[in-house]
Amino acid sequence: MENMAERKVTMRIYGMTCDDCVASVAGGLKEAGATGISVSLEDGMAVLTIDDSRVSPESLAHIPVFTGNSRYRSQIRRVD
């Protein structure tokens, strides 16, 4: 646990239209290792925490829920 570097990541999410979408996006982010996930349908934004010794913030835009046939796309807006 000593090497853990917690990062707060703010993402812009495109393609969400309903609460199911919010759940899908949050699920995809959780699978990628994110915690403390909060997804807003109204703002099209997600805020989450990652351990950047395991997951780089940049890689989040490329996880399955945001690529290929998935209807969602994302951009990293801020990493604190």
Partner: peptide, 14 residues
Amino acid sequence: SAAIKASEITRNQA
């Protein structure tokens, strides 16, 4: 073409 492609990719949400 950039505006249209951006709209298509983001389902008119960008």
